[in-house]
Simulated scan of single mutants.
Amino acid sequence: MTAQPTQQTAVQLTDSIIESLKPALVFKNFQKEVNSLDISHDGKYLVAGCEDNSVSLYDLERGEKVNTYYSKRYGVDLVRFTHHNKTILCASKRDNNYRIMYWSLHDNNILCSFVGHTDQITHLDLNPLNSTFVSCSKDGTTRVWEYEKKQCLIRINKARAACFDNTGNVLACVFIKDDGGNAGGKDGNQGGPVVQQIHLFNAANYETKPFSIFPLEDVPEIKFLKFSFNGNLILLGSTENTITLIDAFEGKQLHKFTSSINDTGSFTVEAGFTPDSRYVLSGSEASKRITFWNVDTGKETQLMEFHPKTVACVKFSHVYCMLVSACQNLVVWIPERVYAQ
């Protein structure tokens, strides 16, 4: 398998290219479902975390598995590459200390663990500019850490979701507005509709007040958010089978995508942007398919039903014209015309 390398700024996907994506490689060596995927900054490696407490490393250029590593004591969730393509961060899955492991796959050594959260960790996001990362938890806090200095820089109370933009200069956090009009209330407005807000912070100085606040109306409970690669859009993954797309400068709602993403009321599948910021993609629990939406037209394109179970993880490479998706199987998709070569 070979795919043509492309630069993030040069990728221009079209509906026809999306529709031509076909499975080129299938890995079936997982004992249980894959719970997270990530691609290294250079596009060469793929890492997959699995419910069997394993992390598998793949060489995408060679199209082969490199090795499998185990964390049987703590479990594995939310695997993310650091700026080094053989070092990852991942959250524990079966540990009462709710640790984040800084793990070298080069020598299979956990370099350190970050401990501070008091409930399940729900999201990890690395700053593309430096060695800081953000973690979110069901304990109602967001923490910013420095993995090279091995320390917590700041704890942000009552922030339920957070992420960095693609420059690393902006941190976005989701809060709930309380009765007094301030972010961070416990349960919203005394039984009334929950009012959520996005606060944008200067990532170089977390102590300052947010430079922008977006009130979010008629948006279900937000589970995670992501910036588009060009920084113009923010994707809100939420309950009630909904993905909401907003303008990153003014907070204006642009689209609501409500296809058959899931049926459970809790967002169990991954969603994100393609590198050219022209499409939103998501896995599916209901249809077992992968869905793309054109951010300009709102048009929906579904890839063939190939996975036997819930498509919980999807990731589009920022270096190659390549899609990776996973349930209990891991599938690498490339455009049909490239596959034919």
Rank of each mutant, 00 (worst) to 15 (best):
S212L: 14
D95P: 10
A91V: 04
A159N: 02
I156P: 02
S284H: 09
H199L: 13
D59C: 09
D179E: 14
D139V: 00
T291W: 13
A248Q: 06
R80Q: 11
L200P: 10
E146K: 07
I222N: 04
A3E: 03
F273E: 03
V319S: 07
F306S: 00
T141I: 03
L200E: 10
A24S: 15
A162Y: 03
L25H: 10
D77K: 07
I198A: 06
G181Y: 10
G116D: 05
M304L: 11
I100N: 01
F30Y: 14
K28F: 13
V55K: 00
T291C: 15
T6H: 13
S259P: 02
Q151Y: 01
A91H: 04
H123P: 00
A10L: 13
V55N: 02
T244D: 05
L78Q: 01
S16K: 09
Q151S: 04
E336Y: 14
L303D: 09
I154K: 02
F249Y: 14
G185D: 04
N169L: 11
N189A: 09
K32F: 13
C112M: 05
S54H: 06
V76F: 08
P210V: 07
V269R: 04
E217I: 11
L323F: 08
D52L: 02
F267Q: 02
N67Q: 14
P210F: 10
Y45V: 09
A286H: 07
T9C: 08
D276P: 11
S277D: 08
F81S: 01
T208H: 13
Q120S: 11
S16G: 02
T132R: 08
M1P: 07
G188Q: 03
Y147D: 03
G283E: 01
Q190P: 09
C112Y: 13
F114T: 02
E336F: 14
G192P: 04
